[in-house]
Amino acid sequence: MKFDRQKTFPYPVLRPFSDDYLDVDFQTNTEFTISGNEIALDCTFITSSEELQAEIDKGFAKFVSIVSCRDTYFRKVIQTDQQAFSVKLDADSLRGEVLVDSYIVAVKDINGFRSQDINPEFGQEAFFFTAGQILAQDETNAIYIDRELFKPLSSVFELVKNEQLSGGKWKVGVDQDNVQIEVSPEMKESIDNARNSKTSRAVLINSLYFSAVTQAIQMLKDVGDFGDLKWARVMSQQIHNKGLDVESQDAYVIAQELMKHPLNVLRANVFQGESNV
Rank of each mutant, 00 (worst) to 15 (best):
D228N: 14
L153Q: 09
I39R: 07
S207Q: 12
I205E: 14
T47E: 06
S154I: 07
D42L: 11
F210W: 08
H240W: 07
A54C: 03
M235Y: 02
D92A: 14
K62D: 12
A202R: 08
K76H: 08
F210L: 13
A216S: 14
D20T: 01
Y252C: 06
G243I: 02
D228V: 07
I78V: 15
S154M: 10
V270F: 06
S184L: 08
S35I: 14
V13I: 08
L89I: 10
A255K: 04
S275N: 10
S18P: 00
Y144K: 14
A61G: 05
V105G: 05
D222F: 05
I239D: 11
N29R: 11
M219W: 13
P120Q: 10
D117Q: 13
E50L: 09
V77C: 12
V203N: 00
G36T: 04
T199H: 10
D117S: 14
R233I: 14
V160N: 12
Q237A: 14
S18L: 00
G168E: 13
P185I: 01
G123H: 08
I134G: 00
A40D: 14
V156K: 04
I39Y: 06
G243Y: 05
A216M: 05
P185V: 04
S275F: 12
S275V: 10
G173E: 02
S197T: 02
K108M: 10
F128Y: 08
G36C: 08
I143L: 12
L258D: 09
P16T: 10
R195K: 15
S155A: 13
D81S: 12
N37Q: 15
A126V: 07
Q79R: 06
D42M: 11
M259I: 02
K242L: 15
F127V: 01
Q164F: 05
Y21F: 15
F74A: 04
D225A: 08
A84C: 13
L94M: 07
T130K: 12
N241I: 12
V213P: 03
N162W: 01
S154N: 05
A106T: 03
F271C: 11
I104W: 06
D228Y: 08
A268P: 05
Y209T: 06
F122V: 00
D117V: 11
Q164R: 09
T80L: 03
V67E: 02
R15N: 06
K221C: 01
I78E: 13
Y103E: 02
N111P: 07
L159N: 04
K169F: 11
L94D: 00
P12E: 04
F210R: 10
V172E: 00
K7H: 15
R70C: 03
V67P: 03
A255T: 01
P152T: 11
K242E: 13
